[in-house]
C-alpha cells in the first residue's frame, strides 16, 4: 500500500516547523513518529498535501523535572518514556502505560506528543495524562498556550489545537509514591485496549469509553466521600458513551469499566 504523493519538509528546528505551519495551516500535516499517520496514509484515508517532519527534532525529545512537575518533550518516543529513570521515579504510571503501547518496534517510533495530538479515544497515554491531571503545551508563532488536558479534547480525533500550532511539551505532576495502576483489557497480546482504566492518587482515567478519554468523575467523588472501592467502582461507567464494535457492545464495555476500575483501584489503594 502506497500513500498518495505529497510534498515533504524536514525543518531542522522547531522555529522552522512553526513558520511552515503558519504559512500552510490546514494544508500541512505534522509527522512525528508516523505510527498513526502513515497507516492512515497507506490506506489512503488521509491524503495530506504537505508533510512537516518533526520526528528528528532533538529539541523536542527530553524528560526534565521542573518544580513539582515533570516536563516531557512532545517528540519523546514511547520507548524513551518507558525506560526513563526520571519517569519511573516521578510518574511511574506513565512509564507503565507507555510500555503497554503496541510492540517494541512501535514504541521505538511513536511519540508522546503524537499520541496525545492524534486524539484517538482508544489510545492509552491520553487517558493516563488525564488521570495525572497533565497539561499540553501548544506553540505557534503567535505564542504558547498551556491547555489542561481536561480541556484539550473535543471529540474523536479532534482537539483544541489550531492548524498553526505544534504540541511541544506535555507536563504532568510528580506523583512520587502515590498509588497507581493501569488495567488494559485486550484480547491479543499487543492489541489496542478494548477498555483501559488508569488510576493515580484517587483519580481515574478511562480509555475507549467515549469520544474522548474520560475521567470517572462519579467514582472519584464517591471515593472522596468515603465510599468503598467496590461501591465506587460500580459508578465507573456513569456519564460515559462507549463505542460498540467487533470487540464488544456498549454494555460489555460498561461492565469492563466497572470491573477494571475495581481492580485498578484495589491495586493502587490497597496494594
Amino acid at each position: 500500500m502506497i500513500p498518495v504523493g505529497f510534498a515533504y519538509e524536514r525543518p531542522d528546528a522547531v522555529e522552522g516547523a512553526l513558520e511552515l505551519l503558519a504559512e500552510h495551516g490546514e494544508d500541512a500535516t505534522v509527522l512525528a513518529g508516523g505510527h498513526s499517520l502513515l497507516p492512515v496514509m497507506k490506506l489512503r484515508l488521509g491524503t495530506p498535501e504537505l508533510i512537516i517532519d518533526i520526528g528528528r527534532l532533538s529539541e523536542l525529545s527530553y524528560v526534565r523535572v521542573e518544580g513539582d512537575e515533570v516536563a516531557i518533550g512532545a517528540g519523546t518516543r514511547h520507548h524513551a518514556v518507558e525506560t526513563s529513570d526520571v519517569v519511573a521515579a516521578e510518574v511511574p504510571l506513565l512509564a507503565a502505560v507507555a510500555r503497554t503501547v503496541g510492540d517494541p518496534q512501535v514504541r521505538h517510533r511513536g511519540t508522546l506528543g503524537g499520541s496525545l495530538a492524534h486524539a484517538d479515544p482508544a489510545s492509552d497515554l491520553p487517558a493516563a495524562v488525564l488521570a495525572l491531571g497533565g497539561t499540553v503545551v501548544l506553540r505557534s508563532l503567535r505564542g504558547d498556550r498551556y491547555v489542561p488536558i481536561t480541556a484539550f479534547y473535543t471529540g474523536v480525533f479532534s482537539s483544541v489545537r489550531e492548524p498553526d500550532e505544534l504540541v511541544v511539551e506535555v507536563r504532568v505532576p510528580r506523583t512520587g509514591g502515590a498509588g497507581w495502576a493501569y488495567e488494559k483489557f485486550t484480547r491479543r497480546a499487543n492489541d489496542w485496549a478494548i477498555v483501559g482504566v488508569a488510576v493515580v492518587d484517587g483519580r481515574v482515567g478511562l480509555v475507549n469509553m467515549g469520544s474522548t478519554p474520560l475521567r470517572a468523575s462519579a467514582t472519584e467523588a464517591a471515593l472522596a466521600e468515603g465510599a468503598s472501592i467496590v461501591d465506587a467502582a460500580m459508578l465507573a461507567d456513569r456519564d460515559t458513551d462507549p463505542p460498540a464494535d467487533v470487540a464488544g457492545t456498549k454494555e460489555y464495555r460498561r461492565h469492563l469499566a466497572r470491573v477494571f476500575a475495581r481492580r485498578a483501584l484495589t491495586t493502587a489503594i490497597v496494594a
Partner: peptide
C-alpha cells in the same frame, strides 16, 4: 515486567 493484557500497579 509488564505486558499488555497484564495487570500492573504499585506493589
Amino acid at each position: 515486567l509488564v505486558a499488555p493484557g497484564f495487570s500492573v500497579g504499585s506493589a
